[in-house]
Design a protein around this nucleic acid. Structure first.
Lengths: 334, 334
DNA sequence: CGCGATCGTTGTAACGTTATACAACAGTCA
DNA sequence: TGACTGTTGTATAACGTTACAACGATCGCG
C-alpha cells in the first residue's frame, strides 16, 4: 500500500507537505505542489480514509437508515437526501433497518454510528416508549412517520392533516362510504394510526358516521395484502364508494383488486393514496394522492443535521412539512 | 470521548485486556471479563470504528454503487444485495452515481473506496473503452447491464436473450409490427443496444423485416419521455400491434400513453417490459416482463466479491444470470 | 539596515485501536 | 528439583493521517 510517506520520500519533501498538497492548503510553492502531485500520480497513491477519519474525528459522511430500500417512497426519499447532502459536501450512505425496532436501535446506538458524522433515521419501529433510548450524544434527526416529543430533532410527515385532506377530497367528490386501508394500528404514533385519525376527523367534519367495518387492517404491509383485503371485503358484501389508502404502495394492490372485481374506478369507487410516489401519475387510472413534500422533508432534515454536526445545542426542533393534494383520475367525477 | 484506555484505567487492567474482552478473545479470566464489561457499561463506551478499521485494515462493509436509488429496479437490487451481504456478515451501504461515467469512476477509483472492503458497481456510464481504468487492485464486481471483458468479475443481466424471448413472446401472441422503446444507443454495450440486438434477432428469427421507424429512442430515460414518444408515434400515423419496452420503468409511460390514446392493451396492442419490477404485477393491465433473476444476480455478485476480498486471484469471472418470461395481461390473447 | 511579518516547510506527537511478543504465575510431571 | 505446559495478562509498537509549533528564509517598511 502506497502511503503519504512513500510519496514524501519520492518527492523529496516531508509527509506534512504531501498532506498539505492533498488538502489544497496554502503555503506550498507551486513547483513543490506540482512535483508532489506528479509523484502521487506516478505511484498511484490514494488517501487512506480510515486514517484520515481517525485523525480528523470527522467522516464527512452521514447515514440514512430507512425501513426498506425497495419501497418506492424510500428510494425517492434517499435520492432527495443524497441531493441535499451534496449541497453540504456530505456523502450519504443508505442502510436498511427492515422495519424492526431492534435494527433501528442498532443503527442509532451501536458502534457503527462512529463511521458517520450524523444519522437520519426514518423510524417506524421505535415508539414513544423508546424516548429514553434516543438520548444519544450524536447528531441524529428522526424522520418521517411517527410523532416524537423526544430529545432529537424531528422532521414529520403531515400525516393527520394530509389524510384529512385526502378523505375530505373523497367526500367532496361525492363519496359517503369510504374504506380505510391501513397497516396494523400498533400504537397511537405509527403512520397508520396518525393517518387513520385524519380519516376519522374528516368523516366527523362532514357529519358522516364511522363504520368500523370499513377499516381494513393489513398484517403485512404490501400490495398483495391490500388486494386480498379488498377481495375479501367485496366478497363479504361490503358496500363502499371510496377508498383511502394509507400509502400509494398499498393503493397499488387496491386498484388491482378493484380491476379484478370489475369495479370501475373512479365511476363506482374513488381511490386516493398517500406519498405521491412517482409511478402513481402513470397508473391507469392515475392515482390521486397526498404529496408530503418529500424534497422539503429531505432539505430540512439535512439542514437540521448539519446544524447539529456543527455543534448547535438548542432545543429539539419539530418540523412538520406541508402537503399538497394531487387530484387525478382515480377520484375524478364525470 | 471515552476510549479503551479510560476503561482500562477504571477497571484496573491494560488496554489490551479491554481489547481482548471487546473481541471476545480467550485468555481472559471470567471475573476480569465481567469487571471490564461492567466498566464499559458504566462509562457508556463505544468502539471507535475508524481506529479499528485503520488498525485492522478491514471494514466489514461493502459498497453498492447504483445509478439511481429511486428507480424501483435498483431499490429491489439493493434490498437483495443487503440480504446476501448479511449472510457473510457484511454491512452494505448504497451510493448513487447518477448514471454518470465520472461518478462511476469516482466510486471505483477514488479515495472513498478505502472505506469498504469491496465494491459492487452497477455500471451504466462506463464502457469498453474504459477497461484500462478498471485495473484496480481492490475487490470490485461489475454488475448488471453492460458487457465487459475487463479485468474484473462481472455479473451480467441476460440482456440479449431476455429481449429475444420477450419479442418472440409478442410474435407468438400474434404481433407483427412491434415497436421497440429504448434509451439512446450510445455504443454497442449499453443496456438499450444489447436489448435491441435481442429484439432484432427475434424479428429475424420469425422472418419479420425490421422497420426502423418502429424503433423509438428516448433522450431521457423516464416514463414521461416514453409516454411522449408513443403519443408522437401515434400522431404521426405509425401502425403497430406490439411494444417491447427496454425496462418496466419505461413501460409505465407506454401503458399510460396507450390508455390516453384510447388504444386497448392487450386487444389492439400488446406490451412487454424488462426487469419484472414488483409493481408490474399490479398494474392494470398487469405488465408482462422478463425477470432477470435479481436474487441470483445479487447472490452471485456478493459471493464473487467475498471471494476476492478473501484473496482469490483467479481470472475474472463472467456470469450471466438466467431469465424467466412472465406472461401477464398486457400480452394476453382473448 | 534592522525588525517584524509572511512564506514554505518540517519534526513531533498524537488519533484509538490491535498484533506481536513476552512476562508472570500456577500447576504438572518426571 | 527443575523443566515444561497452559493460563492470564501486559508493554510496545505500529496502522496512515494530520494539528501544532516551530524553523529558516525572504520580504516590506520605516
Amino acid at each position: 500500500m502506497v502511503t503519504i510517506r512513500d510519496i514524501a520520500k519520492a518527492a523529496g519533501v516531508s509527509p506534512m507537505t504531501v498532506s498539505n498538497v492533498l488538502n489544497s492548503r496554502p503555503h506550498v510553492k507551486d513547483s513543490t505542489r506540482a512535483r508532489v502531485l506528479q509523484t502521487i500520480d506516478d505511484l498511484d497513491y490514494r488517501v487512506n480514509i480510515a486514517a484520515r477519519n481517525l485523525r480528523r474525528g470527522k467522516t464527512h459522511t452521514i447515514g440514512l437508515a430507512v425501513p426498506e430500500v425497495d419501497r418506492p417512497y424510500f428510494g425517492e426519499l434517499g435520492a432527495a437526501i443524497i441531493e441535499n447532502g451534496r449541497r453540504h459536501d456530505l456523502n450519504v450512505v443508505i442502510e436498511q433497518t427492515e422495519r424492526s425496532r431492534e435494527n433501528e436501535l442498532t443503527a442509532l446506538a451501536l458502534s457503527r454510528l462512529r463511521m458517520y458524522d450524523g444519522l437520519i433515521l426514518s423510524a417506524v419501529g421505535l415508539g414513544e416508549s423508546d424516548v429514553d433510548l434516543l438520548r444519544v450524544d450524536f447528531p441524529v434527526v428522526i424522520l418521517g412517520e411517527r410523532i416524537f416529543q423526544g430529545p432529537l430533532d424531528h422532521v414529520a410527515t403531515p400525516n393527520e392533516d394530509g389524510a384529512h385532506a385526502a378523505v375530505q377530497h373523497l367526500i367532496e367528490r361525492g363519496c359517503t362510504r369510504i374504506i380505510a386501508v391501513h397497516g396494523s394500528l400498533s400504537d397511537d404514533t405509527d403512520v397508520s394510526s396518525l393517518r387513520h385519525a385524519g380519516y376519522r376527523r374528516a368523516l366527523a367534519d362532514a357529519g358522516i358516521e364511522e363504520d368500523s367495518r370499513l377499516t381494513l387492517t393489513l398484517d403485512v404491509f404490501s400490495p398483495e395484502a391490500a388486494s386480498a383485503a379488498v377481495h375479501q371485503a367485496v366478497d363479504a358484501g361490503l358496500q363502499f364508494d371510496g377508498v383511502f389508502c394509507v400509502t400509494d404502495y398499498v393503493a397499488l394492490g387496491v386498484l388491482r383488486a378493484l380491476a379484478d372485481l370489475g369495479i370501475s374506478v373512479p365511476d363506482e369507487v374513488k381511490v386516493i393514496g398517500f406519498d405521491d410516489v412517482e409511478s402513481s401519475r402513470f397508473l391507469t387510472p392515475s392515482l390521486s394522492s397526498v404529496n408530503p413534500s418529500k424534497d422539503l422533508i429531505a432539505a430540512k432534515a439535512v439542514d437540521l443535521l448539519v446544524d447539529r454536526i456543527k455543534g448547535a445545542t438548542g432545543d429539539p426542533v419539530e418540523f412538520v412539512s406541508p402537503y399538497a393534494l394531487m387530484a387525478r383520475e382515480s377520484t375524478a367525477v364525470r
